Simulated scan of single mutants.
Amino acid sequence: MTSVTHGSRSRRLMVVHAHPDDESIMTGGIIARYLAEGAEVTVVTCTLGEEGEVIGDRWAGLAADGGADQLGGYRVLELTRALDALAAPGTSLVPTFLGGAGRWRDSGMAGSPAAEHPRAFTNAAPDEPVTALADLILALRPQVLVGYDPAGTYGHPDHVEVHRICGAAIDEARTRGWSVAKHYWSVTEATALERGLDGVDTRVPEGWRMPLADELPRYPDADITTGVDVRDVFERKVDALAAHATQVTVAPSRTEYALSNNIVQPIHPEEHFILVEGALEPPAPGERETDLFGPSTVDS
């Protein structure tokens, strides 16, 4: 949590992610923006990302299938560096792991051996991660919580589980004394994705490829309720992505990145969301929200 506070009317944001790097890919811009504006921001990560596919040879031996099975510990370092990159001068942001670091393990993809691990996140008793997240909500009292859509963005079982526990934890926290005012899904707008791909810089690394049609997840523009401009903190977002070097490669242009699959993805200067609980406060009828917080959101 950032060290900056602004009394009883401080804005408080919680973002919940499955693995280190998800926070920078999906919400790096809002994390940096709201920290810069003096909000309290908590980044909750549910696993250490032990099953990630490592880019390059330097750290390949740390992977779960590389012999050492030490990747999760190294990714804690990458997450720490990424959050430091997102923090504004005069603030600090440190990792918060659901249930404590190492409580639950990266489940890997459905059907993989990792999914059978007794500590896999998806094998947790259904109420345990829900209550752990509700405990954090009660302790930190965020007015806004950001999680994933029902598909978990791209179908990873841990992402789907994050979607489940966010809704359930918000409900549990409400019965125990704190109501989150607004709950969002972090998503990609179709037009923003198309625009970003149309403008891909020619300096992308050799071996990268453009995505096939519908290969990258996106939502129709009409479904998007909120777009937050993050251009003022764009360089921090890019630096945070680069900090996850075992998982992410940032192009020389600093406007594209790729995961281990080498599929080109644009780095968006606006991040998009769907409000699923709470009241929209658009600037005018028919227009989108441009801020996750509104006058009715900021309270004690």
Rank of each mutant, 00 (worst) to 15 (best):
Y184M: 02
V146W: 08
L48T: 04
V230F: 14
I30D: 05
S107K: 01
A242T: 03
I274C: 04
A101K: 11
S24A: 15
I30A: 13
L83E: 02
D214W: 00
L133Y: 10
Y257E: 05
T96R: 13
D223E: 15
V264M: 09
L136R: 06
E215Q: 14
G56A: 12
L83A: 01
A64N: 10
S10Q: 13
I31M: 15
P157H: 10
L86F: 06
S300A: 11
L197W: 02
P283H: 07
A190H: 04
A134L: 07
T246R: 13
S92T: 13
L145V: 15
D149V: 09
H17G: 08
E256N: 06
P205V: 11
A279I: 10
A18C: 15
P118Q: 05
P283I: 09
S92K: 06
D158V: 02
R105P: 08
L292F: 14
E281F: 01
A110M: 13
L241Q: 07
A190P: 00
T175R: 14
P217V: 09
L193M: 11
E53C: 02
H6A: 14
T297P: 00
L280F: 03
P95I: 06
A115W: 03
P89R: 06
R11P: 09
V76W: 05
M1F: 11
L133W: 01
A168V: 00
G207F: 10
P150I: 12
E78S: 12
G199I: 01
P126E: 06
G73S: 10
I55Y: 01
N123A: 15
R254W: 07
I170W: 01
V144D: 03
V146M: 03
A87Y: 04
T45S: 13
